[in-house]
Amino acid sequence: MDSKKWDKIATGVLYFIAGVMILILAFLLIFILWNGLPHVSWHFLTSPAKSFQSGGGIGIQLFNSFYLLILSMLISIPISIGAGIYLSEYAKKNWLTNLVRTSIDILSSLPSIVVGLFGFLVFSISAGLGFSILSGALALTVFNLPLLTRNVEESLRSISGSQREAGLALGLSKWETVLKIIIPEALPGIITGMILGAGRVFGEAAALIYTAGQSAPPLDFTNWNPFYIASPLNPLRPAETLAVHIWKINSEGIMPDASQVSAGASAVLIIAVLIFNFGARYVGNHIYRKMTGTK
């Protein structure tokens, strides 16, 4: 009798807590979308920000976010694939491998503000890149590398050893086997991880405030020569991203419609993250089905 009642209460409590979890997510999403979406318009998405007056947009920040994302992925994807291959295929059980694994562990647990400050010191100041896209992209690379590398390593490890033996027994080198047989098979996992990593990078701000900078000078979208100072592609210009913008206008408080702009920008950010999340799953499954020929 008594224990039955107990069971009921305990189960009820757990249902309640799980419900709270869902409510939290629902609240966050609804709050952001409800408050933000009304401000999101074509004008908002494409026009530059304004400092002391309302009505500004997030056009340049949005462009900067994507440009930084692409640049940092271009740097980090090859490095993480190389390192992932090393760890899954070549690393022997010795002190060197231990050192590498410990380093990756430490890097992945570093606060992103520390990564940002390191980038500030090394890329912006010592290397003379200043507050720039390039400096920001390098900082994001540092931030993203450990997780991408681990993902590549795990995806490669999930492919059966018999596939490697098949390649080797045909007289292929280990490298060719990995590159042409194992990686294609591990592609669904690798790509899913890359897209999730891209989502993480897209929302990152702390690593960027002292590397890519906190200002978004006007861009001339008619001149795409990367060496032209106001060119959107110029990698040496400062580039406030969407995430940094949200932080900046909230902590400065000089923009009259800061909270509307933040809500709109947050909504855009959240939608981007949702797209990255679902996109990762969808693309991963899609490639997997295509490769294995199952429907």
């Binding site: 059966s160 018999s162 596939q163 033996e165 098949a166 390649g167 080797l168 027994a169 045909l170 007289g171 047989i181 098979e185």
Partner: peptide
């Protein structure tokens, strides 16, 4: 290994 080929216990086509 090009001259001494091998077939394994479990079929392992790519």
């Amino acid at each position: 290994r090009k001259h001494i080929g091998m077939v394994f216990q479990r079929p392992n086509p790519f």
